[in-house]
Simulated scan of single mutants.
Amino acid sequence: MLSVRNVHVNYGPIKALKGVSLDIRSNGITAIIGANGSGKTTLLHFISGLVTPEEGDLLYEGISIAAWPTEARVKHGIAHVMEGRRLFKDQTVYDNLLLAAHFRTPRLEKKTITNKMEQVFQRFPILESKKHQPAGTLSGGQQQLLIISAALLSAPKLLLLDEPSLGLAPVIIDEVYSFLQELKQAGMTIFISEQMAALALRIADYGYVLDRGAIVKSGDSAYLKALLASDDLSSIYLGKGNH
């Protein structure tokens, strides 16, 4: 579905990405794993158009979109759930979802919106019980469920997730990852960034290891799990803990 080709991103003298190339396959989960500061967030920001590369290309369904602005990428089906749970925290849970539903398709019928909301609330009853509360009053885990749900309301073809487990209690992490597994089984294409390798590889089909801006290992999840178990990645990857 999406191919990153020889991408270089610099922040002044800092080389954040150094010739990164990878492929995100359709109808499954691809993981990018690596220690904090390895360049994972920069890579996702490049894919969603938030940073401009010094060099490289981005192919989406066979078309180069490297010059497309972020809003064009969203309207063509790329949704990005950023690290830090970026919500309109003064707005209600319902209004955050409503905005997301309209973003890609501005003129949705009321019945369609109602159906979309019902789907969210059936999956996460806690969001329905708090739908009139400001999003900023939710717990961290509830905010993560809200922002993933909001991203899905835009009916994306590709869902980018940056550190979805960050700062969450283990029971909430399990709920989030169970939901991602359901999305995978329904045919969603997902690209997930995680510091905790064992967590991401629990649901991923294929993965890449990023170290100081460069891809150093890649393979299916069984291969990468074996590397973790044998400590072959210990020198470059510090986030091996399991939840």
Rank of each mutant, 00 (worst) to 15 (best):
I47S: 11
S48M: 04
S48Q: 04
G49L: 00
L50N: 11
V51C: 02
V51M: 01
T52Y: 02
P53Q: 03
E55S: 06
G56P: 01
D57F: 05
L59Q: 10
Y60P: 00
Y60C: 02
E61D: 08
E61A: 05
G62H: 08
S64W: 07
A67M: 08
A67D: 09
W68L: 11
W68C: 05
P69V: 02
P69W: 03
T70P: 04
V74T: 01
V74S: 00
K75W: 06
G77F: 09
G77P: 06
G77I: 11
I78Y: 05
M82T: 14
E83C: 12
E83W: 12
R85D: 08
R85N: 10
R85L: 08
R85V: 05
R86K: 15
L87A: 15
F88T: 03
T92M: 03
V93A: 10
Y94H: 12
Y94R: 12
Y94K: 13
Y94Q: 11
D95V: 03
D95S: 10
N96R: 01
L98R: 06
L99V: 13
A100D: 04
A100P: 04
A100V: 05
A101S: 01
F103P: 00
F103K: 02
F103W: 03
F103Q: 04
R104K: 02
R104C: 00
P106D: 02
P106Y: 03
P106S: 05
R107G: 13
R107V: 09
R107I: 10
L108Y: 01
E109C: 14
K110D: 12
K111T: 13
I113F: 01
I113S: 02
N115M: 14
K116T: 15
E118T: 14
E118S: 15
Q119E: 09
V120M: 06
F121L: 09
F121P: 09
Q122G: 03
F124R: 07
P125M: 02
L127F: 06
L127D: 03
L127N: 06
L127T: 04
E128D: 14
S129C: 11
S129L: 13
K130T: 13
K130N: 12
H132A: 09
Q133H: 07
P134V: 12
P134R: 13
A135D: 15
A135M: 14
A135T: 14
A135E: 13
G136A: 14
G136K: 10
T137F: 11
T137I: 09
T137L: 10
L138D: 04
